[in-house]
Every structure is written in structure tokens, then in C-alpha cells.
Design a protein around this nucleic acid. Sequence first.
DNA 1: GTCATTTATTGAACTGGTTCAATGTTTAGA
DNA 2: TCTAAACATTGAACCAGTTCAATAAATGAC
Lengths: 197, 197
Amino acid sequence: MFSQINEHINRCVDFTDAEIMIFNNLLIPKYIPKKTLILQEGEVCNFEMYINKGCIRTYYIDPKSNEVTLQFAIEDWWVSDIGSFHDRKPSKLFIESLEPSEVLMLNPETKEKLLKEAPKFERVFRLMIQKNLTRLQDRFLQTVTTTAVEKYLDFIERYPTIPQRVAQHYIASYLGFSPEFLSKVRTKLSRGSVIRE
Amino acid sequence: MFSQINEHINRCVDFTDAEIMIFNNLLIPKYIPKKTLILQEGEVCNFEMYINKGCIRTYYIDPKSNEVTLQFAIEDWWVSDIGSFHDRKPSKLFIESLEPSEVLMLNPETKEKLLKEAPKFERVFRLMIQKNLTRLQDRFLQTVTTTAVEKYLDFIERYPTIPQRVAQHYIASYLGFSPEFLSKVRTKLSRGSVIRE
DNA sequence: GTCATTTATTGAACTGGTTCAATGTTTAGA
DNA sequence: TCTAAACATTGAACCAGTTCAATAAATGAC
């Protein structure tokens, strides 16, 4: 149950067996059925969730009811609304499972305890957020500089397993355009790559 | 010279005088003239820069020569390419001063030394990046869900001093549309708010 | 296995923002 | 104080992506 996450955190910082033990004892395992709403807009997010198995989606709904997918999280990823979690303020985001999922959770109390008893974890979380930040930066720049075709091609290259696991309109909402247009992009691409004789 | 930055870091974590001393001794003050290129695409970023005075812009130029402004940093902000700085890999970004600026810098060595001698700073940097991440998240969501008018109005409300300090086309490149269109947005807004008689 | 629901495709009309080019305005420097 | 360069405005033609509506295909619940 903990082997995957232990390997995950050991990739960037070296921990002693004692530290790992403290960590594992604080993690709360949970099973989440398919299509379950885990966090609603307006609620304070009280978890950081590591995914052992499954697929979880974070999204935002704007005042005009446009839905934007912020993240697809699969095996070996973390999900949370880090801002809401840390500042104890209401989230703007929704989080839901797209597949039945097995997760390991920290809540504000256990995370604080962890950082107190094993301060080296401070570094793990900094590195994690740092990676998130640079990825989001790239995504932001891509969003304003590229076309729908380029975005879609980059997505399937970067996350080749996701299109097989989630409905297409979720991908459109991740890439920032309408499901109809994604469909058109896809037919255009497949037409273009057909070999004529 | 250090009063501003000391107050800045003390806002989120409590430090002893000894820790502050270590910190201040590691900071490298620097004066940067107006319109100076501080980092070029392809270079490894070797600084984290706190601005005591001035204005510095981070931007990206995509393969089609579109320029996107990622950040305007003014007094009491940090500038860096955190991904490049941390992983010692070439940056995709440019950083330049828009005004003559006075900054305090850390480089990879002094930052490492700081974290070793005063590990509580790990927390400061995590909080800083966390704040950055949530802000970028908001900005990303805004980018895909709002119109140019809404983006512009939000910008002048959020950063009321910036429009007085930087050229308008930089603001357009921050908001993700063309300078011509920003001009049209502005005239439309001013027309709309004129009181007729 | 069937029916209801969700998801994907396609087309036509439309719109927010771009591009290009021309003109006007501000700024800085000798 | 004059001039050159950078910046801002405006208009016309254009285009990438949206919206709406209709149809087709896939999925899942019983």
C-alpha cells in the first residue's frame, strides 16, 4: 500500500526508515467510488491526496457556467486545492473521481504533525509545488500562444494514457475550447494523415 | 537596505535576530539600469531577486515571435525563473528591467547555504511558491474563461499602479491579446462611461 | 439484450480578437 | 528646441474558435 508513495518521496529527498515510518503512519488510506464529488466550490479543502490507483479531475466552473478542467490526476500524482488547504479558505474548485480510486490522504493536522516530526518533508512539498508551478507556467504560455491543433497534439503526446481513460469533452475543457471544436480538430487531423492512393 | 525584505520574510515565519543576520549577510545588493536584459532564453537563471525599488518584467517569446509577459515585478516582489534556477537547466524566459532597479539577490550557492544554516527559510520559499502557484492558477482560469474587457478591468483593479509605470503594449502582452485590441477595448470603455447630457 | 442516457460528430451562422497599414501622439536624447 | 524613435489609435478585411441544433454512436443499468 505504501511502496509506491515511498518510492515517490524518496526520488527527491533521502529519508531514514524512521522518517518513512512516521510518514506512513500519518497517511489515511481511502477508497473512492467512480463519479464521486470529493470537493465542492465553497468548501475548504482538507486533504492532500496521493493517488495509488484511479483517476481524479479538478475543475472550475465560471460565472457563465463554463467548465474548465485544471488537472487530470492519475497514479503517482497528488490532488488538492493547495491554496484552500493551506489558508483554510473556501475553494473555487470542484474535485471528482472519474474512476474508482485508491488514495492516501493527509489532512491539515497530520500534515502539520509530519512537518514537525520530520521537517525534511518541508522540502518534498516545496519541490512538489515548484514542479507544479513550472508545469502550470508552461501550460499558461502554451494556452495563449498556440492553436487548438497544437494544444491537442501536445496533450496526447504528453499524457498518452489519458485520452483512453476519460471522455473527450473533458479533454476539450482541459485544453480550453469547446467539445465540438475538439471533434473538428480530430477529424481534420485524421483526414490529413490518411495515406491516399 | 534590508528593512523591507526583513519585514517581508517575517510576515509568514518568525525569525530570530541570528537567522536574519545570516540571511542579510548572504544577500547580494545590485543596481540595475533601465532597459537591461537580466536573463536571456537559453541561459541558466542563477538568481532569485528581491526588488527593493524598480520594475522588472519576465516574458516569453514563442516560435512565431509572439511575446507574452509572464510577470511585472515591482517593489516587494521576487523575480526569477524558479524552474531554471533550481534544476540548473536553460530558461525559456527573458527577464529585463523596465525601470532603474535596486535588488537583493541570492544565487544557488548562497541559497543553499541559507537553507543549511537557517532551515526555517525552506518554509518561506515554500509559501512564496505556493502563493505564486495559486495566483497563476487564478490567472490561467481567467485567461480561458473571460473576455478582453474583463481581463483588462481586473488588471487595473488588481495592479492599479502598473499602468502608470509600463507601456500599454506590455499590458496587452500580459493579458494575452494584441496591443491594437487593447486600445480598442480602452476606447470602448471610456466611451461607455462618458456621461451624456 | 433493450432502452435511456451520455458522448461524439457535423454543418451553418456568428463573434471576439487578429493583422496590416495608415495616422497621430508622446518621449527621450543631442 | 528639434528630431527620431517608440508608442497608441483607428479602420477594414480576415480567421480561429463558438454556438446552436440535429444526428449518430457508445455506454451502462435493469
